[in-house]
Simulated assay, not measured.
Amino acid sequence: MTDDTTGAPREQGSQWYDSEAGPLVRPYAMTGGRTRPGPTGTRFDLIALVTLSAAVSGADDDRALGPEHRVLIDLCRPETQSVAELAAGADLPVGVVRVLLGDLLERGHVTVSRPVPPAQLPDERILREVIEGLRAL
């Protein structure tokens, strides 16, 4: 096998290595070919907040976790992060991060809190009436 640009022999398997970017790992390899989070049914919105579970110790030795899972855990360690922040911090596509978070959620390593949908927020009129009632006291 030869390099198309120089004509020099190329090492076997080097098509998976880019001299400028380093080794390439395809997203489907990180997620085991999955495109959706596991059976938990949790929907990971971009603004959903991910918090590291109190059960996760500093020396987590869950052997089923890959390096990408560990990166997400490390990003959540200091503070709660949104799914979008985790994707940016881990330099991974959001779809991959959603699948990996599904794995972490199943194992109890993280908790996810979704933002309140606007339809469930109290009406502004009601809030104004409460404020006026408190002022009247």
Rank of each mutant, 00 (worst) to 15 (best):
T6F: 01
T6W: 11
A8V: 12
A8T: 11
R10C: 13
E11H: 02
E11S: 06
G13N: 06
S14F: 14
S14I: 09
Q15P: 01
Q15E: 15
W16F: 15
W16C: 10
Y17R: 09
D18S: 04
S19A: 13
A21M: 08
G22K: 05
V25Y: 00
R26A: 14
P27Q: 07
P27H: 00
P27C: 05
A29G: 06
A29P: 02
T31D: 13
T31A: 10
G32P: 05
G33F: 02
R34S: 05
R34P: 01
T35G: 15
R36Q: 14
R36P: 00
P37F: 03
G38Q: 09
G38C: 07
P39G: 08
T40H: 14
R43F: 13
F44S: 02
D45A: 09
D45Q: 08
I47L: 08
I47Y: 09
A48W: 05
L49V: 13
L52T: 05
L52M: 07
S53E: 14
A54G: 12
A55R: 03
A55Q: 08
V56H: 04
V56Y: 01
S57A: 04
G58D: 14
A59F: 07
D60F: 03
D62V: 03
R63H: 10
A64Q: 12
L65W: 11
G66F: 10
P67S: 15
P67Y: 11
P67D: 14
P67R: 14
H69Q: 00
V71H: 00
L72Y: 09
I73Q: 12
D74H: 13
E79Y: 11
E79V: 11
Q81Y: 07
S82W: 05
E85R: 02
L86H: 01
A88I: 08
A90N: 09
L92R: 08
P93N: 04
V94P: 00
V94C: 11
G95A: 09
V96M: 11
V96S: 12
V96A: 13
R98V: 03
G102Q: 08
G102L: 07
D103P: 10
L105H: 13
L105W: 12
L105G: 08
E106S: 14
R107V: 10
G108W: 01
S113A: 12
S113C: 04
P117C: 00
P117S: 00
P118A: 01
P118E: 06
Q120P: 00
L121G: 02
D123M: 08
E124C: 05
E124G: 12
E124P: 11
